[in-house]
Computed example of a mutant assay.
Amino acid sequence: MTIAIGGYGRYSAIRDWNLGDMDRRDLRPVSPEGLSGIGRWMHETAVRDAEAVLADGITHLFGQAECPRCASVFNVADEYSASNRPLV
């Protein structure tokens, strides 16, 4: 599964080598008011610096995604953090 946040869209999908992204599911952004901690700081900084596209992307990064295979819903940033923690 892949998560895309950028010029090609904001979605989760199954990525196939030959067919590209299949079974796309739109990401569910969090409202700016629902952001906290680092997400709130990042969003406020992007808004302050007139980076509207970046601010919008941050709401998707800290929002939710749906797995195209099993329909599980998860928080994108939390899942990325958990998957990329250093081994102890």
Rank of each mutant, 00 (worst) to 15 (best):
L27Q: 06
M1E: 13
A13W: 01
R48Y: 10
I38C: 02
R15K: 13
G63Y: 08
R28V: 14
V73W: 03
V47S: 04
G7K: 15
T45C: 03
N75S: 14
G34K: 00
L61I: 10
I5A: 04
H43L: 04
N75C: 12
E44S: 04
E79D: 15
A4L: 07
L61D: 06
V47W: 02
C70Q: 07
A55E: 05
A13P: 08
V76S: 00
L27C: 02
E66A: 15
G57Y: 08
M22K: 12
S72C: 11
E66V: 13
N18P: 05
G9M: 06
E51M: 11
A65L: 03
S12Q: 06
A65H: 00
G34D: 00
G57S: 12
R40S: 00
P86Y: 11
S31D: 04
M22N: 13
A13K: 07
V88F: 06
W41A: 15
P29C: 07
G57R: 07
Y11P: 03
S81R: 11
Y8H: 12
P86M: 13
A46F: 05
L35C: 05
E44G: 01
I14W: 10
D26N: 11
R10C: 13
L87E: 11
G63Q: 07
N84D: 08
R10Y: 10
L54H: 14
V30K: 06
P32T: 01
L87C: 13
G20T: 09
G57C: 10
L87I: 13
P86H: 12
V73G: 04
T45K: 09
H60I: 03
R48D: 13
T59P: 02
V88W: 05
M1S: 12
L87H: 15
I5R: 04
G37A: 01
V73S: 07
F74W: 12
I3M: 04
G7Q: 10
R69P: 02
T59D: 02
Y80A: 02
A82T: 08
H43Y: 08
P86I: 14
G57M: 09
I38V: 10
L54I: 11
I5C: 07
G6T: 08
S81I: 09
Q64R: 15
A82Y: 01
D78C: 11
I3R: 01
M1C: 15
E44M: 01
E79A: 14
D21M: 09
N75F: 05
P68V: 01
E79G: 03
F74L: 06
I5G: 00
P32A: 00
C70I: 08
R40V: 00
P29R: 07
A13Q: 06
G9P: 05
R48C: 06
E66W: 11
I38E: 09
H60Q: 04
E33I: 05
V88T: 12
P32D: 04
D78I: 09
R85P: 03
T59N: 02
G39S: 01
M22Y: 10
S72V: 09
R10E: 14
D16S: 15
R10N: 12
